[in-house]
Design a protein around this nucleic acid. Structure first.
Lengths: 239, 239
DNA sequence: CGTGTTCTTGATGATCATCAAAGGTGGTGG
DNA sequence: CCACCACCTTTGATGATCATCAAGAACACG
């Protein structure tokens, strides 16, 4: 669906790689070469891409769909480290076991490559290593931003920051229009923001009552008063 | 001081690079080459390595001393993103402005290199790019761990996790003995853990009263009951 | 020895978690 | 096609944890 809207990079026959994902910096010939070493998978909501502590055998590019990255706590609760969308790369780690789990929230297509094959490719295509570094730096910045949100903001400000981050995620996927996909449950959002699902629910209905947001259907939101949400985050989210 | 304890890599005449830092993977000849493009600085507590939003002109290796990375909130409070110790690399970012500030907590020596010169070096020594990626992956993991701490743990568990992380940081610097450096104030720790300085103070005196920790002098701690602290974090910090 | 900073300790209260129950929604199978 | 079931969401009542406000003590520094 987003396929036609992509413009610029195009290509991405099987993998979407050219557009975003790991292989973005490659030219057509190299891309074919790399794609030869990959597998494509179709998956369903709740499927695990990998579990926390699993052997880190693959690197994944999410071609279509949404996933959450989670760490499990001993008492059964979980912390959501982040959400990932079409075009994002998942599961690169220095260690040989994944330090967190990746679970799909929607139907999805992914492109994956074996870790040990990747090492060869990295030697052959140095641009890939640079790409991985750029992606890692981006992820780090996003995680730090999230740390600020969870560490220093009120419940309302956290939910506001989350909603605003959805529009950023939508833009990266060239999503047009004011209505955003929000495939995660209140519980997922709560585990992301360091709150309970009740608090998230109450906060969202408060925003709805104030006319700041609208939920046209399950899994979608529209932000009607972006300024109000921005103000809640205290101006600390730029753009 | 830690200098003689290093063993293995040694070298590190000026920069400490061989031991840790950015240049660890280089051989002696390449190291000399790289060092020729660096500057060495001696700095004092409270000096800023760089401010949030400054032009990202340099990459720094902390040779000696401790620093905190912070983001400022509009209301004047700050979130400490992390602490950095001898051997750590600071200030690598994809953007052209630093997204956070770096301030020293102790007297320090740093080795820095201009951003644009680094780009040339990265081409000449691909191992450096790999090194940067490894460091970034490590930082990401640490930040995610911190997100779990701040998002899901009680005040006591957060302080316990912080203390335990100090022993990890000490080990990386080959610090021997049970007494750890803790150059940060209660306020710094609070801003790191998403608490107030009063709560940190109360929690630490509680630990002291229980005989779990001791502060032989300002800026040092000894952990007397590691198991107790570990249990507080709920077993979610391994090792 | 004084001054600024950091640390401790107490009293009070707000925010958000917890416990509980009912209303929606989508999906599945009879 | 309808009914049932699992899961998600909403809303309320209550209370615990931690922030806030305040003041004094310890410490480091010049």
């Amino acid at each position: 669906m987003a396929r036609e809207a992509l413009g610029e990079g195009e290509v991405c026959a099987t993998c979407g790689s050219r557009v975003a994902g790991l292989c973005r910096p490659l030219d057509a010939a190299s891309l074919d070469d790399v794609l030869a070493e990959t597998e494509q998978l179709s998956l369903s909501p709740r499927d695990m891409l990998f579990g926390e502590g699993d052997k880190a055998a693959h690197i994944y590019t999410l071609v279509q769909g949404t996933a959450k990255l989670t760490r499990l706590l001993p008492d059964g609760r979980e912390q959501v480290l982040g959400f990932r969308f079409a075009g994002d790369v998942l599961g690169y780690t220095g260690a040989d076991h994944y330090p967190f789990a990746a679970q799909l929230l929607t139907p999805a297509q992914v492109c994956r490559i074996e870790r040990r094959r990747l090492d060869g490719l990295l030697r052959r295509y140095p641009a890939l290593e640079r790409r991985l570094l750029d992606l890692c730096v981006q992820e780090l910045a996003a995680t730090q931003e999230q740390l600020v949100t969870v560490g220093r903001r009120t419940a309302e400000a956290r939910v506001a920051a989350f909603l605003l981050s959805l529009t950023e995620a939508g833009r990266r996927r060239h999503q047009v229009g004011a209505v955003l996909d929000m495939p995660m449950t209140r519980g997922d959002i709560a585990d992301f923001l360091g709150l309970t699902l009740e608090t998230v629910s109450r906060t969202l209905t408060a925003f709805r009552r104030r006319g700041w947001v609208r939920e046209p259907s399950h899994g979608r939101v529209e932000l009607l008063k972006r300024e109000a949400l921005l103000e809640l985050t205290d101006g600390s989210m730029e753009d």
